[in-house]
Nucleic acid binder design. Sequence first.
DNA 1: CGCATAGTTCGTTCCTCATCGAAGCATTCT
DNA 2: AGAATGCTTCGATGAGGAACGAACTATGCG
Lengths: 224, 224
Amino acid sequence: MREGPDIARIASLVGDPARANMLNALMGGTALTASELALEAGVSLPTASSHLSKLMEGGLLTLASQGRHRYYGLAGPQVAGMIEAITGVAASVGPQRVRPGPRDGAMRVARVCYDHLAGEQAVAMLDRLVEKEILLRDDKEIRLGQLAASHFAAIGIDVDAKPRRPVCRACLDWSVRRSHLAGTLGAAILDKILLEKWARREKDSRAVIFSPPGKQAFERVFLG
Amino acid sequence: MREGPDIARIASLVGDPARANMLNALMGGTALTASELALEAGVSLPTASSHLSKLMEGGLLTLASQGRHRYYGLAGPQVAGMIEAITGVAASVGPQRVRPGPRDGAMRVARVCYDHLAGEQAVAMLDRLVEKEILLRDDKEIRLGQLAASHFAAIGIDVDAKPRRPVCRACLDWSVRRSHLAGTLGAAILDKILLEKWARREKDSRAVIFSPPGKQAFERVFLG
DNA sequence: CGCATAGTTCGTTCCTCATCGAAGCATTCT
DNA sequence: AGAATGCTTCGATGAGGAACGAACTATGCG
C-alpha cells in the first residue's frame, strides 16, 4: 500500500466544509481576500486564516499580497479540474439536494468556471465553433483554425498574443458532461460577455445571467 | 454559500488515509473483499468494514454479494475519473514523494486504470489509433472509424456488441496529462493484453509490466 | 450439527482538528 | 504619531470520528 501520490492529503483538504466552500467560491475565478472567504465559508476570520494556510501548504492556492490585502486564488487549472470532478461525483451520487432551485437552474445554463464560461451555453458555443472550423478539436487539445484570427479580431479579441498559458483548452463540464472552452481564449470571451453587459454575474454565486438582448447578441456572435 | 452539490462530503470520504488506500486498490479494476481491502489499507477488519459502509453510503462503491464473500468495487467510471483527478493534483503539488522508485517508473509506463490500460503506452496507443483513423476523436467522445470493425475483428475483439457502457471513452492520464482509451473497447484491449500474456500485472499494484516479446507484439498490433 | 471462515455491530478509548476570543503584526489613512 | 483596517498567531475548548476488541450474524464445510 501507500505507493502513489498522497491522495488522502489533498482530498482531506477539500473534505472540510469550510474549506470546500472557500474553494467553491474561488471557482468563480477571481482571487478573494481572507475576510471575503471567511464570510463565504461562514466562519470567523481566525478560522478562515487557519484553513487558508493549510490550503496554501497543500499547494492548492496561490497568494498575491497587495498592500494590506492578501488575495487568495486557485493554484491553477489542474486544481480547478479536480474540483469540477469531485463536484460531478457529488452531483450524481448525492441524495440530490432536495430542491434543484432556480439558482441551480441558472448554474446549469451558464456559470463561471475559474476564469471562463461553463454550462450549457458554453458547451453549445464550443460545439458551434468547432462545427464552423474556427476551432479544431483534437482530444483535450483544442487548436485555432484558419478562420480563428479574423473571426475573433472582428469582435475585438486578439488570439495572437502568446502568453504562457495555452490559448485554448478543453474543460469538462460537470452539469452537461461535455467539454467547454477554457484557456486564455475562453477567458477573453468571458471578459467580452461581461464587458458588453450581455450578462451579469449573480451576486455571491458562480451563476451568469444573460439579459434577453444580451443572449441574442451572444448567440448571433458565437452560435450564428 | 452551500449551494452546489456537497463536495466536502465526497472529498472527506476520500480524505481518510485508510479509505484512500482502499479506493486506490480498487482503481486496479477488480472488485475486492472486505478482508483484502483491510489488508490493503493496513487496518483491522472491523475498521475496514466501517469504512466500507461509509463509502457505500456515499455512493462511491458498489457491492456484489456472493455467498459469504462480499465484493466491493468502484461505483463507476465517474468515480474513477475523480480519483485520477485528485491523484494528478497530489502528484504535481505534493512534496514529490522522496524517491520516484522503480515502481513509480513502471506505473508511468503502463498501469491499470479501473478496467483499461493507462500510462505512456496507453496514450501512445490512442494517438496512433486516431492517426490511422481507426478511431475518431472528437472531444471526450471517441467514436469508431470505418476501419474499426475489421481492424479489431482481426485481433479477436468484437466492437459491434452494444452494451450499456460506451464502447469508447477518453480518460485523462494523470502521469502524461493526455487522454487514453477507456470504455468497453479499452477494457477489451486490456483483457487481450493480459490474455495473450504480453504483460503481467505487478502483484498488489496497478503497474503493468510488458515482457520484451510482449511489448513487440503490442507495438506491432497497436502502434504499427 | 458443530466448527471454521467472512463480515458486521457495539462500546470504549483516544486523538486529531475545527472553532473562536484575545492578543500581536503589518499596512494605510489622517 | 496615532488610529483604523486586514490578517495572522496563540491558547483553550470541544466535538467528531478513527481505531480496535469482543460479541454477534451469516454462510459454507465435514
